[in-house]
Amino acid sequence: MIDGRGFADDRIGLKHGAGGRAMRALIEQVCLPGLGGGATPGGIGLAAMDDGAAIPVGDRWLIVTTDSHVVHPIVFPGGDIGRLAVCGTVNDLAVMGATDVTALTCAIIVEEGFPRAGLERVYASIRAACEEAGAPIVTGDTKVMGRGEIDGLVLNTAGIGFCDRPVPDSSLAPGDVLIVTGTVGDHGMAIMAARHALSLDGDLRSDVAPINGVVRAALGAAGGGVVAMKDPTRGGLSSALHEMAQKSKVGILIEEAAVPVRPEVRGASDLLGIDPFVMACEGKAVMGVRPDAAAAVLAAIRAHPLGRDAARIGRCLDTHAGAVILDTGFGRRILAEPDGEPLPRIC
């Protein structure tokens, strides 16, 4: 349970899907008990609330994950719902340690009246993303619903992959180094700009991409030194760090100036009064790395085309367990955990 606070709402609101505290309360107190508690003896299951499950199979681990995708608009700068659906699942597998995707499934629910050309475009980008990730789709499902019963298109993908050692998001220890594989906030800011008709003109584009390649490079260079991973999707870097700090029971100190943020994202974030650290990424990983492996891991990530902007952003503390502290260069503060869909501010 989060900070001892109950899930008190009698209805589900948008905040319960925004990746922050409210969403975790919903999952922990409604979904998890509803699914039977989620104990997975010998593996990583529901109860761990990780990016996916890990089940021991012989001397290896089977990683399983699933993800549903609704995005408005369906096509956005830098990608579309198809690319997002493939990358979301590939990336969840990757941050659990399975960088080679054995198989994906793809289910689609279409609203009556959806244009055929639009659907074909979504499938084309599903195919392209699968090729990029080396991920075969092996089965699928198709449904059509009446006009107004869903909003355009809903995609669900599930994926499986194998690995020798799963990487949980809960194994940080004091002294571990935190690395992010590239700029943060790109996807969230691109979607926000498109969604609220903010008429922002600039290169705000989603970073949606399969990161299994860059994660593979990092794991290959680490010699077992990558001890925790997460993809900072909803709730952004802030949510990912909070989860890692709370599950690992360590403090995390982040140097704000070290976190890569594209200038356009920073500009939009100043303009809209929104912290880029709470905006979603769809092509990045946050890693906790043992200090002696950090240099090699960072070099390997940077050598990958999707990891050129990778940076060492902070470290784990033996104090302040569960807290994420931001050193701003002017002082220090607790990094806020997002608690709802970010909205543009005027105040």
Binding site: D201, G202, E264, R266, G267, A268, D270
Partner: peptide
């Protein structure tokens, strides 16, 4: 006016 806010432009 079209104004540039550090890389993002807006009317």
């Amino acid at each position: 006016a079209t104004v540039d806010f550090w890389g993002v432009r807006r009317q």
